[in-house]
Design a protein around this nucleic acid. Sequence first.
DNA 1: CCAGATCGTCAGCGATACTGACGATCAGTC
DNA 2: GACTGATCGTCAGTATCGCTGACGATCTGG
Lengths: 146, 146
Amino acid sequence: MERQAADDGAEPRLGYLLKHAYLAYGEMSRTALEPHGVDGRDLAVLALIGRHDPMSQRDLANLLSVDRTTMVGLVDGLERRSLVTRRPAPDDRRKNIVELTASGRRTLKSAGKAADEVERRFLSALTAADARRFRAALHALTRNPG
Amino acid sequence: MERQAADDGAEPRLGYLLKHAYLAYGEMSRTALEPHGVDGRDLAVLALIGRHDPMSQRDLANLLSVDRTTMVGLVDGLERRSLVTRRPAPDDRRKNIVELTASGRRTLKSAGKAADEVERRFLSALTAADARRFRAALHALTRNPG
DNA sequence: CCAGATCGTCAGCGATACTGACGATCAGTC
DNA sequence: GACTGATCGTCAGTATCGCTGACGATCTGG
C-alpha cells in the first residue's frame, strides 16, 4: 500500500493529481474510520439517512450516485452490523425503508467526527482560505459537467 | 456510465467530491483520448519517455506510482500498438529500455494536445486564477502525506 | 565464487461494480 | 376489475483491475 508520489520535475497531469489526491484521501479515511467499523461510503449512507430519515434504497443509491445493485450490498453490510434496519414501505411495498438504529446513530456521530478530522488533516497543507477555495472549486467542478 | 451528481442540499464530504471529480475527469479524458488510441495512463507513460528518453520499466513504474506488474501490461499494450519498443539495457540486461517509436512520438504530440484541451475544459467552470490555485492545491495535497 | 537483491514476467487471487434476469408490486388504460 | 408497462430490491454471473507470490535471468558485494 505504498504510494510515494514520485516526481521527475515536470508538472503532472491534472488526472494524475486528482487520482492520487483521491487515493491519498481514501487511505487516510480508511484508517481513520476503521476503528468505527465503517468506510467512507457506509458513513455517507448513514449520514444521508440521518438527514432525511425515511429513505428507500433507490433514493440512497441515487443521492450517492451508486448503482442500485451496489446499494443492496451496502445496506446488507450495515444491517449485518445492526447500524440500520430494513422494513417495507407502507405506501409502496416494493420499496425498503432504511432506518438508523440507536447504534447506527451513535456510529454516525463518532465516525462523522473522525471523518471531519480526516478532512481537516488532509487539507492541513493548505491555508484555511485555500482550503475553503479548494472545496468550493471541487464543488463547482463536480456540479458542472464540463 | 451515468453519473448525475445528485444533491440533497447538504455539503458533501470531501471524499465524495474528490471521487466524483476524479471520475468526471476520467470520463472526459477517456472520450477525448479514445480517437488517439490511448488512455490517460498510456499518455503519461509516453510523456515520461519523451521527457527522459531511456527509461526502464521500473523507472516508469516508480515515477507513475504504479505497480511493476501493472507496468508490464501497460508497456505490452503500447508495444502492440507500435508506440514504443523494448530492448534490453546494455549496462544491465535485467532491465528493459522503453523507447518511443516515430508513431509514438506523433501520438504523444496529438494526444497531448487533446489532454491539454481536456484539462482546460474540465477547469472551465473556474476562473483562470481559481484554476491555477486549484492545481496548486492539488499539487500540495498530493506531495504532502497529510 | 556465492549469497542476496533486483528486473521483468506470469499465474492466480480478491475486490469491485456492473449486466441481465427474476418475482413482487405499483400506475395507468381499457 | 383485468392488463400492460414500469419500478424496486435481489441475485447470479461477468468483466475489470491491481496486487501477491513465484520464477528465471541478471547484477552486486563479500
